[in-house]
Simulated scan of single mutants.
Amino acid sequence: MDLLLLSNSRNHGREFLAHALDEVDDFIGANRRLTFVPYALADHDAYTAIVAAALAPRGITVVGVHTVADPRQEVARAEVVFVGGGNSFRLLKTLYATGLLETIGDRVRAGALRYMGASAGTNMAAPTLRTTNDMPIVSPPSFETFGFVPFQINPHYLDPAPASTHMGETREERIREFLEENDVPVLGLREGSWLRVSGSVARLGGDNGALLFARNSEPAELVPGEDVSPLLATTPRYDVTRSG
């Protein structure tokens, strides 16, 4: 499998995808055509136009799956698919409804389709939706996602702010709660970071690194460029007891 999993599509003060444009360009490769899945936002046309404008200077043509009669046929002939960010629950529900969860999943796992995700699209690459930050504005049939990687990802990971007076849970506390009930690593991707997977090799990219959470362990700091390939050998365990 060939995956590019971005934490976010837009960095503060920069245009859409500008922080990762060279990486995206390299990932798309010689065929300058990208199939885009805009289902995480309500306005599919506007979202597709944003992606198209960002990639046009690189000579890349963007086709929104919502513009064709059969999205599955579009995906079946695509070489690269980009699943954009927004609300992960809305995205997953629509992937099930359109049959794209199966079509994209089968082709990516077979090595016939390269997969790029951002935010919600990156959430889809994990086995389940359980570590998303999003509000469940709709109810998908299941929390099961593509499962391209055998661990969880938390895009937009925010480190605790020591001077903050906010009394709600931090992102770290929420991930620790997840690990009380599940035994599977969680990769907290900070803004401006991404994960590139090619076959059995996985490496962090971008500027800000990541934090790796594991059950019964303290979080581990991961730096840009770090090889995280051992994570691909993970055996995830869900719904286990705290002592399990």
Rank of each mutant, 00 (worst) to 15 (best):
V62T: 13
T131D: 06
M135W: 12
G86P: 02
D159F: 00
A125R: 07
D70I: 04
N87T: 11
L129E: 11
H66T: 15
H66Q: 15
S88T: 15
A53T: 13
S119L: 01
F82N: 05
A76D: 15
I104E: 10
E79M: 04
L113D: 11
E144H: 12
F151D: 04
R109P: 01
H156D: 11
T103M: 02
F148L: 03
R72C: 14
M124R: 08
A118C: 08
T98W: 05
F146V: 08
V65Y: 03
R72D: 07
T128P: 05
T122S: 11
A69K: 13
G86W: 02
T122H: 02
I104D: 08
A76W: 05
E74C: 08
G59Q: 09
T94C: 02
V149H: 11
N133G: 12
P162G: 07
V63S: 09
A161N: 14
T145I: 03
T98R: 06
R77P: 00
G86F: 01
A163S: 13
A110D: 14
V63T: 15
P57C: 02
G121W: 03
P160C: 02
H66S: 14
D159Y: 06
A120V: 00
T132L: 00
P141I: 09
M116C: 02
N133I: 04
G121N: 09
L92I: 09
L91I: 07
T131G: 00
Y96K: 04
A125C: 05
A118M: 04
Q152R: 12
L95P: 02
T67D: 14
V80I: 01
P141G: 14
H156M: 04
S142E: 14
K93E: 15
T98S: 15
M135T: 14
V63G: 00
M116Q: 03
I153C: 02
A110T: 07
G111A: 03
Q152S: 09
F143Q: 12
D70W: 06
A78W: 07
S139W: 07
Q73H: 12
R107M: 10
E102F: 04
D70L: 03
R72V: 03
K93Y: 07
S139Y: 04
N133P: 00
L95R: 09
P127H: 08
G59S: 08
V62E: 05
Q73L: 13
N123L: 01
D106V: 11
T94W: 06
A120L: 03
S88R: 07
